[in-house]
């Protein structure tokens, strides 16, 4: 019995695999800062001299357009949908196509939408495609895992807060990725501490991540400068010296690992 090809999935995986490296940013848990960290990593990797695309896979609450604002329309050419090109990055998100409109989709329809969006997006030859996953281990992560498994230079970073609740959800995502044979580069601890002058305060305490069996790539501060940068449209990865240095160190580790 011949398997009739799934045209859109085949094309979606082919287009993603054209990037030299595929970096997934996931969590399982919502509200931990995946989109901000995806953006900051993408911008930092770009400033390190690589060509970077950032793909927002969040159907229900795409955040990338809130960070990289644009009044430009997405363009269609004979090669497909052209990603927006802002600040040296290539960006694609449903938010650039339907704004803040609700997109109430169920499983199969959501999968179909994402396959079509990825199959049509015409990235330039990229060194990195950074993929910002929504919370959960559902359809979006399933699609992402298919892409990760087919890509020879791929990896996932998981974002967590220093909270047992967050960590338990992240552990589920980690277990799923491992079961599927996907490479996990490590975890990033977000909102881990507050710097007050010379003092460092960890308001949520400290967690022992050793049982996860993966590296902690770095910790990011809880810094009001990030929200201020978001409000004023300034680059988030340069919100403060502390944030910039932390993100740069994490990006350098990823660059070595990938």
């Amino acid at each position: 019995m011949m398997r009739i090809p799934d045209v859109l999935q085949d094309e979606a995986l082919r287009r993603v695999s054209r990037a030299k490296r595929l970096l997934m940013v996931a969590s399982g848990k919502g509200g931990v800062g995946k989109s901000l960290i995806s953006m900051a990593l993408a911008s930092t990797l770009s400033e390190m001299g690589t060509k970077v695309g950032l793909l927002d896979l969040d159907v229900h609450g795409p955040s990338i357009p809130q960070i990289f604002r644009s009044e430009l329309l997405i363009k269609a050419t004979r090669h497909g949908l052209e990603p927006l090109r802002i600040d040296g990055l290539e960006l694609m998100s449903l938010g650039y196509i339907v704004g803040d409109s609700p997109v109430p989709l169920r499983g199969e329809d959501k999968m179909s939408l994402l396959k079509m969006m990825i199959a049509l997006t015409n990235w330039s030859p990229l060194d990195y495609l950074v993929v910002d996953l929504p919370p959960g281990t559902g359809d979006e992560m399933t699609l992402a895992i298919r892409a990760l498994k087919k890509h020879p230079r791929s990896g996932t970073v998981l974002i967590t807060l220093p909270s047992r609740l967050s960590l338990s959800v992240v552990k589920r995502a980690l277990d799923l990725l491992r079961d599927e044979g996907v490479r996990v580069l490590g975890i990033i601890e977000n909102m881990a501490y507050i710097r007050c002058g010379e003092d460092v305060v960890r308001p949520f305490g400290s967690l022992d991540y050793s049982s996860l069996g993966t590296e902690v790539l770095g910790s990011l501060p809880l810094d009001p400068a990030v929200e201020e940068a978001l409000a004023s449209g300034r680059p988030l990865h340069k919100a403060s010296r502390e944030v910039m240095e932390s993100i740069s160190a994490i990006a350098s580790k990823i660059e070595v690992m990938m």
Partner: peptide, 14 residues
């Protein structure tokens, strides 16, 4: 053009 023609599953958004 409407995004619907490129991404039909956006019907519920449009």
């Amino acid at each position: 053009e409407s995004p619907l023609h490129f991404l039909p599953d956006l019907a519920r958004a449009l």
